[in-house]
Each structure stands twice: as structure tokens, then as C-alpha cells.
């Protein structure tokens, strides 16, 4: 191993740990979220160092990007409802009884012991040890795509991926259910520069998102990363109020959310015939089916992530029942 890279790794690892601690201890919540976003991006960088570019892309786009947007939106909402929108260092919750520092230290010591145990277990485990390497490279030619991660997500372990899309669906149903009739905090004023920026950047994002999806067959990228980037388009449209969800759009939105799940599950079942089981794509159609699934799943992911950001189900607030709900 060459030394400069080891030093880089050590510095990066140290920075990641420091940011993790800082994001939990800094007083200002806004700063905490920002530190968390930097933490996420540095983690993605570390994963690039570990030659996991797909994971790094997903973490940057979804784990940090979408999550960061969700956190900031929630922070904005909390400050709005508690009337502390203008205060820089306002906390989102009125603190209950403060936790005695003894409890905190006891917990920290407890977690320290766990860390120590986990670290020992980790050091005792085989390094660069057994894995699926041989199995994957053996099965790759039959998978229909060239990129191993895509092959795993959409073929070898496609069932997991279907269920992951179902998790997203469950989340959006739950969020709509939870936030029914909740009035929105006014969107922050973005200013003209922002509007212009959004207009400039939107087409570029669409291109990047589509490229990521398309590249997934051969190179790092794929449905989830592409979907997240396309969801950013939705976020921008929502933030700039270029698109305002209306009650009449609910039907279409529902269809967009379930599209990926339905097509994925339907294809999985339809290929099961003549001795084949679910998800067993016929060899000559594997690539076409995988691309079809990926494309439609991307649309669902983009729509779902944007809806998770938007939160409420768009309902007419004139409706009496909704007002009672609020």
C-alpha cells in the first residue's frame, strides 16, 4: 500500500467520525443537518475509495441528497409551527426534562463497550474474505446485463429489489395517511436568482438522471440513482411552485407510485411458466425485460421520492372533513 493514500484514508475516516459527532452535538439544528450532509458526502467519498461507486452514487443522491432535503423541509415546518422561523438557533422541540448527564455517560459507556466488542469481532473476521465473487462472475453471462450490481439488483436478487420498491410505496402511503389535512408551512422565498437557476438546471438534471438510468446496464448507475436525480427535478418544481399538486392529480400520482411495483411484480409472475419460477427471465428476453422494469421503476422512484418530500396528499382544504382532521 502506498503511504499517501493510507494517510488520506486515515484523514477521511477521522473527518467522518468527527462530523458524525459534531452533527449530534452542535446546538443549532440547521447546522446539524448541514454537518450531516457533509458527513454523507464524505462517506460517499470513502465508498468510492472502497471501489463501490454505485453505493457512493446512491448514498450521495438518496441517503444524503433526498434525506437532507427531507430534514431541511421538516426543520422549516417545525420552526413555522412553533413560531421560531426567524430564530437561528431555535430547537425544534421544547425540551422535556433534560436527561441527567449521568444517564448520557452511562449510555455512552455502554455504547463504547459495544463498539469495542464489535471492533474486536470485526478484526477477528476474515479480511477480504469469502463472498459471492465467484458465483456472480459465473452467472453474469446469463444475467442479461453487463454491470454486476445491476445484475444483482434486477436479476439475482430481484425479489429484494421489488420489496424495496414496495417499502417506498408503503412509505408514501403512510406519509399521505399521517399528513392528511395538514396545512403547509409557507415555502421559503427563493428569490429570482433561484428561479433562474432552477430553469437553467432542470433540463440538465433530467439528462443526468436519464443517463444514470441508462448507464446502469453497463456502468455504475441504475434505477435508484437515476430515480433520485429525477426526483430532484420534482423537488425543484415543487419548491419553485412551477408545479403545485392539486386534488385532481391524486389519481395520476397514485398510478405513478404503484407503476414500478405493478410492472415489476407482473413481469416476475408472467415469466413463470414452463417450469420456470417467478423472476426467472427467459435468457433471450432478459435484457429487454430488465430495461423495461428499470425504466418504469425509475419513474415510480422519482415520483415517490418527490411525493415523500412534498408530504401531504393534495386534498381540497375546503372539504369539511379535512378541516376537521387538521
Amino acid at each position: 500500500m502506498n503511504d499517501p493514500l493510507v494517510i488520506f484514508d486515515l484523514l477521511l475516516g477521522g473527518a467522518i467520525i468527527a462530523l458524525a459527532i459534531a452533527s449530534l452535538t452542535v446546538r443549532d439544528l440547521f447546522a446539524a443537518v448541514v454537518l450531516f450532509i457533509i458527513f454523507g458526502l464524505l462517506s460517499a467519498l470513502a465508498w468510492v475509495r472502497l471501489s463501490a461507486p454505485d453505493v457512493a452514487l446512491a448514498e450521495a443522491a438518496i441517503g444524503t441528497g433526498v434525506t437532507g432535503a427531507l430534514l431541511l423541509k421538516t426543520l422549516h415546518h417545525l420552526r413555522f409551527v412553533t413560531g421560531t422561523l426567524g430564530h437561528q438557533s431555535a430547537l425544534s422541540v421544547t425540551p422535556h426534562t433534560p436527561v441527567p448527564s449521568g444517564v448520557i455517560w452511562a449510555n455512552a459507556a455502554f455504547c463504547g463497550l459495544i463498539t469495542l466488542g464489535l471492533a474486536v469481532a470485526f478484526l477477528g473476521a476474515p479480511q477480504a474474505g469469502p463472498g459471492f465473487d465467484a458465483l456472480v462472475s459465473e452467472a453474469m453471462p446469463a444475467s442479461g446485463v453487463e454491470h454486476p450490481v445491476t445484475a444483482i439488483l434486477l436479476n439475482f436478487r430481484a425479489y429484494d429489489t421489488l420489496m424495496e420498491v414496495v417499502v417506498l410505496l408503503a412509505a408514501v402511503i403512510a406519509v399521505w395517511q399521517i399528513e392528511r389535512g395538514l396545512s403547509d408551512a409557507p415555502a421559503p422565498v427563493m428569490g429570482e436568482v433561484w428561479q433562474g437557476f432552477a430553469r437553467l438546471v432542470l433540463p440538465a438534471i433530467v439528462v443526468v438522471g436519464t443517463y444514470l438510468l441508462w448507464a446502469g446496464a453497463e456502468a455504475p448507475g441504475g434505477a435508484f440513482q437515476g430515480g433520485a436525480v429525477l426526483a430532484a427535478v420534482g423537488l425543484l418544481l415543487l419548491l419553485t411552485r412551477a408545479y403545485v399538486p392539486r386534488p385532481g392529480h391524486r389519481g395520476i400520482a397514485r398510478c405513478a407510485f404503484v407503476l414500478g411495483t405493478v410492472v415489476f411484480a407482473a413481469v416476475a409472475l408472467l415469466v413463470a411458466s414452463g417450469g420456470r419460477v417467478a423472476f426467472e427471465y427467459p435468457a433471450d428476453h432478459a435484457k429487454a425485460l430488465i430495461l423495461l422494469i428499470e425504466g418504469l421503476v425509475t419513474i415510480s422512484i422519482a415520483a415517490t421520492l418527490a411525493a415523500l418530500f412534498h408530504g401531504r396528499e393534495p386534498v381540497a382544504l375546503r372539504n369539511k372533513e379535512d378541516r376537521n382532521d387538521t
Binding site: 459471492f132 458465483l135 456472480v136 452467472a139 436479476n155 439475482f156 436478487r157 430481484a158 425479489y159 420456470r276 419460477v277 417467478a278 423472476f279 426467472e280 427471465y281
Partner: peptide, 8 residues
């Protein structure tokens, strides 16, 4: 599922 069989 998928005809691959465990562990893949």
C-alpha cells in the same frame, strides 16, 4: 426465485 438458487 429467479431460478438461481441460494446462495446467489
Amino acid at each position: 426465485l429467479g431460478g438461481w438458487g441460494a446462495p446467489l
